[in-house]
């Protein structure tokens, strides 16, 4: 049993449309796994099924070997599955620091009413420490007191990442984190990802269109097309693969 996320023969249907068709993949901890494919290939749907926003028609989702297919969103997060969104989801009226703090605060609050009402003093220290560290890792110290809604797209992506890092999840699903970033920003983003995976032994499943970023940070790649798994292998193999070129790289270049 490996730790990390495993998707087994997953199928998701929207009405008559098959968005994800019998896909299996593994994203173990300690490495960055890329998931690429043209628009509408089913990448975000696969994410949504993995973390409980969409119910799959068949197949399983496992986290550290445990079947989480039927668990609700919050429960999966409590087990260590973190998630960022293609359309950045921040708490816009709160400050950057409050956003990042809520990363850990949320996991601690969980599902029990009493835990949602009050925090213990020791927890408050944990929250502050986790937020401090995440802010430093993402280089957001100078923005800590700014309202999150007022930042640029690049920094908003970083705030979302910092919030997930503060949550202490060991498996992250990142949905197109570099969209809206310029080259310099996405390079920096990639460096942060590589850093946290090495330091914390966490796993990342990365959906991304920015091929430079994918090729430079991912250890392993899956390619989806029309809901089906088209290819899996190292990034080097992917670049060489005729199938992948035809379906994806060819059109992107």
């Amino acid at each position: 049993m490996t730790s990390g996320l495993a998707v087994e023969s997953l199928t998701v249907r929207y009405g008559g449309l098959v968005a994800v068709d019998d896909v299996s993949l593994e994203a173990p901890t300690g490495r960055i796994t890329g998931l690429i494919g043209p628009n509408g290939a089913g990448k975000t749907t696969l994410f949504n099924a993995s973390n409980g926003l969409v119910r799959p028609a068949s197949g399983r989702v496992r986290l550290d070997g445990r079947d989480i297919t039927r668990l609700p969103l919050a429960r999966r997060a409590q087990l260590g599955l973190g998630r960022s969104f293609q359309r950045i989801e921040l708490f816009n009226s709160l400050s950057v620091r409050q956003n990042v703090e809520l990363g850990r605060e949320g996991v601690l609050a969980g599902s029990m009413p009493w835990r949602q009402l009050f925090s213990r003093r020791s927890e408050q220290r944990t929250v502050a420490a986790a937020a401090d560290e995440a802010l430093v890792v993402c280089g957001l110290e100078t923005f800590a007191d700014r309202p999150a809604g007022a930042l640029s797209t690049g920094n908003r992506r970083l705030v979302e990442l910092a919030r997930i890092l503060a949550g202490g999840f060991h498996m992250l699903l990142l949905d197109e984190p570099s969209s809206g970033l310029d080259d310099r920003e996405s390079e920096r983003f990639g460096a942060i990802l590589t850093h946290v995976v090495r330091e914390r032994e966490i796993g990342i499943l990365l959906v991304e269109h920015h091929m430079e970023l994918v090729l430079s940070v991912c250890h392993y790649l899956y390619v989806l097309d029309f809901g089906k798994l088209l290819f899996e292998g190292t990034p080097q193999d992917a670049v060489r693969s005729e199938v992948v070129r035809a379906a994806y790289l060819g059109t992107a270049a």
Partner: peptide, 25 residues
Amino acid sequence: RLGRLLHALADSPLALGAQGVDVNV
């Protein structure tokens, strides 16, 4: 804590749920 959760809930229930909070509770 409740106050912070409520403010966050007003902004994005989705993000709050993805952080492990059962927002229905």
